[in-house]
């Protein structure tokens, strides 16, 4: 898969998060994987289609998800990863992917995105590609969010 397709997703992450009150995220890793991704606790899958088709997964620990939800809700404490916190993470994934879609349009690739599917659990596997996919790790205030991107070609 084409590495240049990953930039719109990283750019979306680094642009959108500061707008929600986070410090600018840093990219701390990027690998090409062909094994199934493993859930770190909370994983959101968003599909896209039109000129390119694929899936993106935002994969993080429950602690990180609670930290992000809390920051998004103006610092409101989040003790449990409850429905409200889940909605916040779904909404963030939706915003990130919609922003990535806009960035892709700038490359001449129009895409439509699906509603996010939020999954919670430990150590389950996530398969988004029969082939290789890209895995980018972003650091937000010491919290890691893994972004897995698979594009069908």
């Amino acid at each position: 898969m084409d590495v240049k397709l990953v930039n719109p997703f990283i750019d979306a992450f680094t642009t959108v998060l500061p707008q929600m009150g986070f410090p600018t995220p840093q990219r701390t890793g990027m690998t090409v994987n062909n094994q199934n991704a493993v859930s770190q606790g909370v994983a959101v899958i968003v599909g896209f289609t039109k000129e390119i088709r694929g899936n993106v997964v935002y994969n993080m620990s429950e602690d990180t998800a609670k930290f992000i939800a809390s920051t998004m809700m103006m610092g409101m404490p989040v003790e449990n990863f409850d429905e409200m916190a889940q909605s916040a993470i779904s909404e963030m994934s939706n915003m990130l992917t919609a922003n990535a879609a806009t960035n892709l349009t700038a490359l001449g690739l129009e895409v439509d995105i699906s509603t996010p599917s939020l999954t919670v659990g430990s150590d389950f596997q996530i398969k988004i590609s029969n082939e290789q996919y890209l895995c980018v790790v972003m650091d937000v205030s010491g919290h890691q969010v893994e972004i897995d991107i698979a594009v069908q070609q």
Binding site: G47, Q125, I128
Partner: peptide, 8 residues
């Protein structure tokens, strides 16, 4: 969109 699969 293409399927994503979770297993576990």
């Amino acid at each position: 969109t293409p399927p994503g699969t979770v297993i576990g």
